[in-house]
Each structure stands twice: as C-alpha cells, then as structure tokens.
Design a protein around this nucleic acid. Sequence first.
DNA 1: ACACCTTCGTTCGAATTTGAACAACAGGAG
DNA 2: CTCCTGTTGTTCAAATTCGAACGAAGGTGT
Lengths: 158, 158
Amino acid sequence: MPPLNEPRWLDPDEMAAWRGFVTASNLLNRRLERQLKEDSGLSHQQYEILVHLSAAPGDSLRMTELADKLVTSKSGLTYQVTQLERTGLVARRSCPSDVRGVFAELTDQGREMLRQAAPGHVALVRELLIDVLSREQLAVLAEGLGEVSARLRLDETP
Amino acid sequence: MPPLNEPRWLDPDEMAAWRGFVTASNLLNRRLERQLKEDSGLSHQQYEILVHLSAAPGDSLRMTELADKLVTSKSGLTYQVTQLERTGLVARRSCPSDVRGVFAELTDQGREMLRQAAPGHVALVRELLIDVLSREQLAVLAEGLGEVSARLRLDETP
DNA sequence: ACACCTTCGTTCGAATTTGAACAACAGGAG
DNA sequence: CTCCTGTTGTTCAAATTCGAACGAAGGTGT
C-alpha cells in the first residue's frame, strides 16, 4: 500500500530540477542586478517597471495592474514608482474613470533610459541563459514554466 | 550582412522562456515564503540555511561556504545566522584550524524544526512545480538550468 | 623574520521589501 | 437613496538585504 501520511520526498531527478531552478534564479538575479546598477544605475525591479510600461498601451498602467505584472506588493510598487518619479523616468497620472486610480506613465526620459539600458541587459540575459540552452530546451522551459506561472496566477485571485 | 552593432533582441520563443522563468520564480518564491512563514515562522532563506546545514557533514558549514551555497552575501548570512542563533536553531562554533573561521552548526532544536517544516514545504514545491511538469520536462529543466548555474559559478570566482 | 596580498566574518549605513492598517471611493443589492 | 462589501493606492513600522569598509589573521615569497 502507498504511504498516505508520509511525505513524498523529491527523488534525485526532481531534486536536481528544483535546486537548479532555485540556484540559477538566484545567480541570475544577482548578476543582472549588478550589471544594470553599474551600467545604468537602475535596479532590476526598476528596469522591469520601465519595460512593462513601454509595452503597455499609452505607455501607462494602473498601479495594481503593474504590481500584478511585476509580481510584487502594492506597497513595494508605490515605493519604486516614487523613486522613478524622483529621477524623472516615470510620472503619475490620475485616472479619469476612477478617482482612486493612479496611472504610472513612462516619460520621454524614461523611454530614453530604457533605450540606453536595454541592449546591455538583453545581451547579458542572452549570454547567461538564452544562448546556453538549445532551442528545444528553451521551448520546454517556456512551456513548462508558462504552465507553472499560469497555475500560480489562478489560485492567487480566488 | 548580419547586424554587428545592433543588439540581438529576443525572439518570441526566447522571450517566452525568459518571462516564464522570471515570473515563475517570483510567484513561486512568494508562495513558498508565505507558506513557510505561516506554517513554521521561518523565511525561505532561513529554511534553506537549515537544509544546507543538515545536508553537510557534521551538520555544520563555514560561513563563506554556506553563503556560496545559498547564493547570498556574506553580510546577509551573518544577519540570518544571528537570527537563527537567537531562536536556538543554529549555533556558532569557532574553527580549530583557522582563528578567523566560524562554523554555523545545526542544533537539535534546528533539526527538529526542519523535520517539522520540511513536509509542508516539499508538498508545496511538488504541487506548484514538480507535479505540474512531466518527467521529460523535469529532466530538461535540471540539465539546462544546471548548466546555466555551473557557468554562472565559474565566472564569479576568477 | 619581513612585507605583501588574500581571505574571513562582522559592522555599518543606506536602500529596499513586506504585511497590516487605513481612508477614500466604486459598485451593487435591497 | 442607503447600506454593504470589495477595491485602490498610500502610509507606517519592522525586517531584511546589500556593498563598502574594517580589523584580524592566513599564506607566500624573499
């Protein structure tokens, strides 16, 4: 009979996948953080804010929506947007249809900063992750982790 | 002729892999953090410290070595080990062969905490990641991200 | 023994992150 | 309209993180 109360531990293959995921994630973040800070004075989080805004219609997003995309807390986003506002890369705009609403909007200066920072960042992502993996590995990674993300998104909301 | 000065942007497949990786990583960390904190009062980082110590010979590791395994800063580890020492889960021992050296050692209480916390944590890792992926996907993930990690480790040291 | 460079862990201040609490508002049921 | 419930973004204190600087010690070459 299968053990019901005993936890199902990870076998060596599963453990290798899990440790690889955690380690690669930490190492990558560390490197990208360093590169962005040295190269453009931006944190990875700040860079991601600019990226998401530039990809949004009107170069602007509601605070809550942006926080969801970034997978961060609302208060954390408030802090970072304030920082970016101080350096002139992002501006706050109030929402016409909802008095409570606040749009974060990419400024011209923010767009220019992104244009300057993106090449170096993308090159490093390529060097450290993308170009290390084969086309097949990339496909598996995209599909697998896409599914993982999708499921995680689901039981957050309800 | 191929563009030499133009950055090689990520094509849709590559972008999907990269975004999937970042998003899954953030979402997973967030969930595991919440679960561990609620269930055992530990942060993910603290839990990982206990795990690495319990896997080490003599249930102890040098501070620097532990920091490397955790992929964190030395000062960050100093802080966390101090916290764990306060709650009695970890003890500091001085190194016989090197006066500067400090061992972090798992206490009996720490071992007991790990025994209590591990099942819930592993179950969630399983539910959110391992069991979502097929055996083949897991293998690709382990091999690919293992290689990525290995390369990142290499050009850190020299 | 001496100088020289590296390594070890900690300390320090600054920056960031988090969750809970909050006030203001939106949207619907009655 | 009026309650009631959920949402929105911010504020706040506390916890955590990082890098740089540091003192102390190891290790090497001469």
